[in-house]
């Protein structure tokens, strides 16, 4: 499991820019970002190199941020790569709440992020030979500053 930053944002112009600038000023590097929105507000999900620091910076700046545990899986760059992963989860009756993907520069595989409702999921995926990646590959896990 890795930690994802989830940030509550009101729908107003320039607000996403303001939030990302706050992170940039704190030296936080973003790897992936996904916006989920409703009519009235949005939730921005972020994979970054220093999630704990990012949360603290955002809290201090008055944003609403929380850390969410999600699964990161390396998916081979070929047709059916994602479908294979999802089928494993389906067999184990693990429900996927949301998913998104990003590609690391120069990598031969994409990284997919899954929010699931079942703590067994990482073990299930690994047992099926999937490449579940831990925090060390994506960020500084013991980041305490």
């Amino acid at each position: 499991m890795i930690e994802q930053l989830s940030v509550f944002l009101e729908n107003k112009p320039g607000h996403l820019a303001e939030m990302t600038r706050t992170l940039a000023d704190a030296g936080v590097n973003l790897r992936a970002l996904m916006v989920a929105d409703t009519a009235d507000f949005g939730v921005v999900r972020i994979i970054c190199d220093r999630p704990h620091r990012a949360k603290k910076v955002l809290d201090d700046a008055g944003f609403g941020a929380s850390l969410t545990r999600v699964i990161a899986v390396e998916i081979p760059d070929r047709p059916g790569g994602l479908a294979d992963v999802l089928e494993v989860l389906k067999e184990a009756q693990v429900n996927v709440e949301y998913a998104y993907a990003f590609v690391e520069p120069g990598a031969a595989a994409a990284v997919d992020i899954f929010k699931v409702d079942d703590a067994r999921a990482p073990a299930v995926l690994e047992a099926a030979g999937m490449s579940v990646i831990g925090p060390e590959k994506l960020y500084e896990p013991d980041d305490s500053d």
Partner: peptide
């Protein structure tokens, strides 16, 4: 501030 902001359905 201590809300779980990842849960859109709960926020709604």
């Amino acid at each position: 501030q201590d809300t779980d902001f990842d849960e859109i359905r709960e926020l709604e």
